[in-house]
Design a protein around this nucleic acid. Structure first.
Lengths: 215, 215
DNA sequence: GTCTATAGCTTGATAGAC
DNA sequence: GTCTATCAAGCTATAGAC
């Protein structure tokens, strides 16, 4: 066996790539299996052969990059030496650990990463059904909440959980990159300027968490 | 003419009510016209008779309560006497003007309002297509941004626009009332506790906006 | 693992009687 | 304004040859 075989990766991965992009752009229900197979220039039956059902293809798309993103976040969180930081700077470091991996992958990873970030952002805002984000991302979330409580003893358990919800909301809304900011500012600013948006988002989240304990 | 005629409101309004609920719960694409007409106990053809197309029914649902919500927010914003407030309390008042109307209607209005809030929350997080929230809600948004800049001269125009995005994101995520908080806390806290969630959200948003200027 | 062909069902929308 | 009946198109999924 000389490393991996090349040929057997083609169709399956093309399906994952195209599905990722289309689901992110239009949502699960608005995309048909035909849309995906046509976009990938493969036959209709290949989806059922490789993934059994359309929904399991969707799950495979979500799972594919979830591990990587979680590792990014986990290692960013583990790198923080809280002993050297003020509480506020600790919160800032936590905000970075949550936001930066998504930002880095979205802007500097391959094009699929941008779609993926859009996809999980949209998924997180859904009420149910294919809302599988929890299983993939809860473990890291719990660590983050625990660290928040540790460096901010004045923060109640309930507020630490709430803080994380506000953080999710503010963050994922950015990564949908919808056109609201563009239309509001008549093109002066753009939802695609993730660099400055994420910079200020860290400030916003940090100030927000600190604002929870001051009163 | 003795006031309004009663009988002619029935089918059309039943359709609006059921569509509102179903669209909010499952999204536009996951709900069929048949689902709606069955739920409303009316005939399939009535949707096309009253609204022409499924999509125009959706638009009618969104439009129905948009005016009321906007008036709530506008009058809340106009009531603030900024001269008497510190900058931070001014920001807090603005956050209240944005959040409270949705909160009040969602928790104290008729049941349709809860669905409506869920619906526009989900819509706001979509990338495009039926993302018509902008036309309905941009006018108020621009007023809010203008007031932010007025009471915080240190806040750049760009940051005022960004602040509003963070505010939207954090807020609408709450109003989807998805089960993430429930699963994270193993049922200890719930996404349906909008009262405490919105209380702390105002603190978070206020602190977040102040955090943008301090650095 | 790929491809054709198709089954079986659901979709949005309409025509036309009442 | 309501109702029945139906159309044409789209859908997911599968059977079976290669």
């Amino acid at each position: 066996m000389t490393a991996k075989r090349q040929p057997k990766k083609k169709t399956r991965d093309k399906l994952l790539d195209v599905a990722e992009k289309m689901f992110a752009e239009h949502g699960f229900d608005a995309v048909s299996v035909r849309d995906i197979t046509d976009g990938a220039s493969v036959r209709l039956a290949s989806v059922n052969y490789h993934f059994e059902t359309k929904y399991k293809l969707f799950l495979a798309v979500v799972a594919r990059r979830a591990t990587v993103l979680n590792q990014d976040r986990k290692s960013a969180l583990d790198k923080i030496s809280f002993a050297d930081l003020t509480p506020e700077d600790g919160v800032r470091a936590i905000a970075h650990a949550f936001i930066d991996p998504m930002y880095q992958r979205s802007t500097q990873g391959d094009e699929g990463w941008k779609s993926y970030c859009r996809l999980i952002a949209q998924q997180a805002a859904l009420r149910h059904s294919p809302n599988i984000t929890a299983e993939f991302f809860n473990p890291f979330a719990l660590e983050l909440i625990a660290q928040l409580k540790k460096i901010l003893p004045g923060l109640e358990d309930r507020q630490a959980h709430y803080a994380f919800q506000y953080m999710i909301g503010a963050t994922i809304y950015l990564f949908t990159e919808n056109e609201r900011l563009d239309s509001l500012s008549r093109g002066k600013y753009s939802a695609h300027d993730l660099d400055t948006l994420c910079d200020d988002l860290v400030k916003f989240v940090t100030g927000g968490v600190m604002g929870l304990i001051s009163s």
